[in-house]
């Protein structure tokens, strides 16, 4: 069965059609890149898949179950992890506490009022931080970490629930080139090892063409192309959107 199936998704904001009839599928272990110019509707798509926005039309099937209309916290419990375009972590907690928070939530212990939270599942949290290369910063507050580091903490948080699907909105924005490659290589390894389907948006073409198994291209809310790297690279409509009509320059991998 397809892991994530999105059918005819649509959303308008007061007359502007932000996402119009978008459909795609994501298989386990696959990295699917969603690209397109600013305002193409990428983040809106993400927000509809994880429940932050309610679509006007369309279905989102996770393992065959329609998840449209569920709140984000329920969708997370069903196995959809997410990182944000502008990284969102808990600034008043240390890196390791941020991950522990997600683990506490996974175990369903959120309403316990007596046991110390900072002692809960510390080893597991540390090993997740280890996995994203942040173990040495575990005790530093997230509010003062460098932005690239916060993005990696976000990944560790998203992984805490052993997700089936990972939604990553511009995972490498604000990172140095070397860091980007490292983070994407890590993401690919995680996806392959654990059979996680990764849907990500990205403006860096190096990242997109280096790591995506498949691509979908949005422009003004509509899907204009989908396929593997080569077919998207050679697609004339994609070239038109990115470079304007009449140009012959190619996309570099």
């Amino acid at each position: 069965m397809t892991l994530l199936l999105v059918e005819n998704l649509a959303k308008g904001f007061g007359g502007v059609c932000a996402v119009d009839n978008v459909s795609f599928r994501l298989e386990a272990g696959e990295l699917l890149a969603m690209i397109g110019p600013n305002g193409a509707g990428k983040s809106t798509c993400f927000n509809m898949v994880n429940g932050q926005l309610r679509p006007d039309a369309g279905r989102v099937l996770l393992d065959g179950k329609n998840i449209v209309g569920l709140p984000p916290h329920d969708i997370w419990r069903m196995g959809v992890g997410r990182t944000f375009q502008i990284a969102a972590t808990f600034g008043s907690m240390t890196a390791v506490e941020n991950v522990q928070m997600a683990l506490i939530s996974r175990e369903g212990l959120l309403y316990r009022m007596w046991r110390r939270a900072d002692r809960h599942a510390r080893e597991e949290a540390m090993s997740l931080l280890e996995r994203v290369g942040m173990a040495d910063q575990a005790e530093r507050p997230c509010g003062i970490l460098a932005y690239g580091d916060v993005k990696r903490i976000e990944l560790a948080i998203a992984l805490a629930n052993r997700p089936k699907v990972l939604l990553m909105d511009e995972p490498t924005a604000g990172m140095a080139p070397k860091e980007r490659i490292a983070l994407m290589a890590l993401t690919r390894d995680l996806a392959h090892e654990n059979g996680i389907g990764v849907l990500f948006t990205e403006h860096s073409m190096d990242v997109v063409f280096g790591y995506a198994d498949k691509l979908i291209v949005l422009a003004r809310g509509k899907m204009i192309a989908e396929g593997d790297r080569d077919s998207v690279r050679d697609n004339p409509r994609v070239r038109e959107v990115y470079f304007g009509a009449g140009k012959t320059a190619g996309l570099h991998a």
Binding site: N50, W76, F84, T89, F90, M101, A102, L110, N161
Partner: peptide, 12 residues
């Protein structure tokens, strides 16, 4: 700290 992140890790 972040209601967005909270919802995204299953906190109601």
């Amino acid at each position: 700290d972040s209601s967005l992140r909270s919802e995204a890790i299953g906190i109601d």
